[in-house]
């Protein structure tokens, strides 16, 4: 009813796997992204001993499985099908501050092995804990890891392996950005969303527009212009502000519904917000449905005069999105 896809069988939720060596940061990532754990609290996490399954309820339901690093999944006796069957994407978390040779060997073995039985899986490598690398070496290490993994896969006979690389850290927005991209690779309607957002950007003088999953702050689409991580960060923090303020002031007042037209109009509104004059820009947010919000950075410092035009265009987009999502 809210334009949410209801999958018939819960087993068919797209599944994401987090894999990697012990202490590489898998549980930290899933706790920070899906349970709002503060990054510094991950210092107290204990080694994972069993597969931990999380699900993300959104416009599309995802499952995220955290696989303990201490188990050998390639072991013959292992029921690989129960874990890897139906997986959409696998994320290999690679600790960049550790001696990463062993991790690269294991990663290559795993991909080569899985490719045979589960050719549809998409792979991402999170080159993780980049915050703890000295700035001078950071780029070199990232390049070195990317090169080695690509070479090893090539040598193993995989010429165009479906692998993407992302530098990540739980101490900045990098991890959310990377997760967003992985999720996007599982969304069939992505090109449609992007085209719609490009239209908005062009017609309303926006610098950048994102379609956010409000709870996780993963963005499921954006316009296709290039943007800095800081732009995503600001929009994501803006959502926090709105969510927090709505919690503090969104309590039920028990106002009488007098059945008037005015009361009806209000109850049909979707939430909206703007912040004007953020160093020459403005921020804009509009609720699309229970899960999604459109957030954008406008090139206008004073947003008020633009608001009517933007609202008009965004409402049109909202209608289209609802249709697309329903057709799913």
């Amino acid at each position: 009813s809210n334009g949410i896809i209801h999958t018939e069988h819960s087993e068919h939720k797209p599944r994401l796997l987090l894999m990697g060596l012990k202490r590489s940061g898998k549980s930290s990532i899933s706790n920070v992204v899906f349970h709002k754990m503060a990054p510094h609290e991950t210092l107290f996490l204990e080694a994972t001993t069993q597969i931990k399954k999380d699900s993300m309820r959104s416009f599309m339901d995802f499952q995220v499985w955290d696989l303990p690093g201490q188990i050998d999944y390639l072991d013959q006796s292992f029921d690989a099908d129960s874990i890897f069957g139906g997986v959409g994407a696998m994320i290999w978390v690679l600790d960049a501050q550790d001696n990463y040779m062993e991790a690269i060997v294991r990663l290559t073995e795993t991909i080569v092995h899985l490719q045979q039985s589960f050719p549809e899986i998409k792979y991402s490598v999170f080159i993780h804990k980049t915050d703890s690398l000295a700035e001078d070496y950071r780029e070199d290490i990232i390049r070195d890891i990317t090169q080695r993994v690509s070479d090893d896969l090539f040598d193993a006979g995989l010429e165009n392996p479906p692998v993407s690389f992302y530098p990540t850290s739980i101490y900045d927005y990098g991890i959310f950005e990377a997760f967003s991209k992985v999720i996007q690779s599982l969304i069939p309607q992505l090109p449609v969303f992007e085209a719609l957002l490009n239209t908005i950007t062009a017609s309303c003088r926006f610098e950048k527009v994102y379609l956010f999953d409000v709870l996780s702050k993963i963005y499921i689409a954006s316009d296709t212009s290039a943007a800095e991580l800081a732009t995503y960060g600001l929009c994501s923090d803006y959502i926090d502000v709105i969510v927090d303020l709505s919690e503090v002031y969104g309590w039920e007042r028990g106002r009488k519904d007098d059945g008037s037209k005015r009361a009806k109009d209000i109850s049909k509104q979707s939430a909206e917000s703007f912040i004007s004059n953020v160093k020459g820009y403005s921020l804009y947010l509009r609720e699309i449905n229970t899960y999604l919000a459109l957030v954008g950075i406008s090139k206008e410092a004073r947003f008020e005069p633009e608001k009517a035009l933007v609202d008009y265009n965004v409402q049109a987009l909202q209608k289209t999105l609802k249709k697309v999502l329903r057709r799913g």
Partner: peptide
């Protein structure tokens, strides 16, 4: 305060006055 600090990350400035003009929110309850 947290949001002001993210404005400063965004603008790359380090002064203590990360201003914004007006913040406005409209919902069905307030």
């Amino acid at each position: 305060k947290t949001f002001k600090s993210s404005i400063s990350t965004f603008t790359g400035s380090s002064t203590s006055s990360h201003q914004f003009g007006e913040l406005y929110i409209k919902t069905t309850r307030f």
